[in-house]
């Protein structure tokens, strides 16, 4: 259903609008409220980080934006159109790379491209090679997934998400399972790629320092049920270094804000993990 207003104004300046979304997970005997009346607007080209402890519904919100889950009430608008299904214009990256072990690296990246019409095999291959070059894996086109390190897997997953040229990139704790050094390398990579390719990124993490380093804006969630509590804008110049004093200052402020919403379980949030 499109309203008259949407028809008259097809190009909305807001890339994504989350409008009063609520979601409750129901098991046989219990109901866990995951999101309670959450609204959020993301501008074209913005890098937004969602932070909060586990159980605050940030991943659920990301899944709803992706179209993988449906909200109980409220809706998500992408470019003014209601999201009902997953779509190539919103690609998702998961904590586990979710690469397909039966395909080699380049065919993993080409998976989404093969579903895109109007491209021949040669063009698809070139696009895949371009993105694998962008993430620094030109030498591993024919490698098997199990031969890659955790960081390399996430780079391939990033290339796979970028390849169909989505406008929006949804990232669900993509670096959480990596070691600190690999993560730092990926922080600078993702900033470089974001600037080069002008994507809109929504990045979910429980690592506040990471959020302060990457985001134009950091949105703070509190759990049970998931609600947006505060938003911080981070006007630091890029590229940012996660170890810089400025990032640390912002991260300190955000942690302070977060802590007042969780008196009982302060250990669930880390400023620097």
């Amino acid at each position: 259903m499109t309203t008259l207003a949407e028809e008259l104004n097809p190009v909305s300046p807001e890339k994504l609008v989350v409008d009063a979304v609520s979601k409750t997970f129901r098991a046989r005997r219990s109901a866990v409220p995951a999101l309670d009346n959450v609204s959020l607007t993301v501008q074209e080209g913005e890098f937004v980080c969602l932070v909060g402890p586990s159980g605050c519904g940030k991943s659920t919100l990301l899944n709803i934006i992706a179209g993988l889950e449906k909200p109980d009430s409220g809706q998500v608008l992408a470019d003014g159109k209601a999201v009902t299904n997953p779509g190539r214009e919103r690609m998702m990256m998961f904590q586990e790379s979710a690469l397909f072990p039966w395909l080699d690296v380049i065919n993993n990246v080409m998976f989404g491209l093969k579903l895109k019409p109007n491209l021949n095999h040669q063009e698809r291959r070139e696009v895949a090679e371009y993105y694998l070059h962008l993430v620094g894996l030109d030498k591993f086109l024919e490698a098997n997934v199990h031969e890659l390190s955790g960081g390399m897997k996430q780079r391939v997953a990033l290339a796979r998400a970028l390849a169909p040229n989505p406008r929006v990139l949804l990232m669900d704790e993509p670096f959480a399972a990596l070691d600190a050094l690999t993560r730092e390398q990926l922080y600078s990579d993702i900033q470089r790629i974001w600037q080069e390719r002008r994507k809109t990124i929504i990045f979910v993490t429980h690592n506040v320092r990471e959020a302060a380093c990457l985001g134009d804006r950091v949105v703070v969630f509190s759990p049970h049920p998931g609600r947006i509590r505060e938003q911080f804008s981070i006007p630091l110049p890029r590229p940012r270094d996660i170890n810089s004093v400025e990032v640390a200052q912002y991260s300190g402020e955000i942690v302070k804000a977060l802590k007042q919403y969780l008196p009982a379980t302060p250990e669930t949030v880390t400023a620097n993990s």
Partner: peptide, 28 residues
């Protein structure tokens, strides 16, 4: 693992395509 099908869905795979190109090879 259900994440394979989820990842495929975000890339535009649906129904029979998901079965032939994701579920079947994953179960091979």
């Amino acid at each position: 693992p259900p994440i394979y099908a989820r990842a495929a869905r975000t890339m535009g795979s649906r129904g029979l395509h998901t079965w032939l190109k994701v579920i079947l090879p994953a179960a091979l």
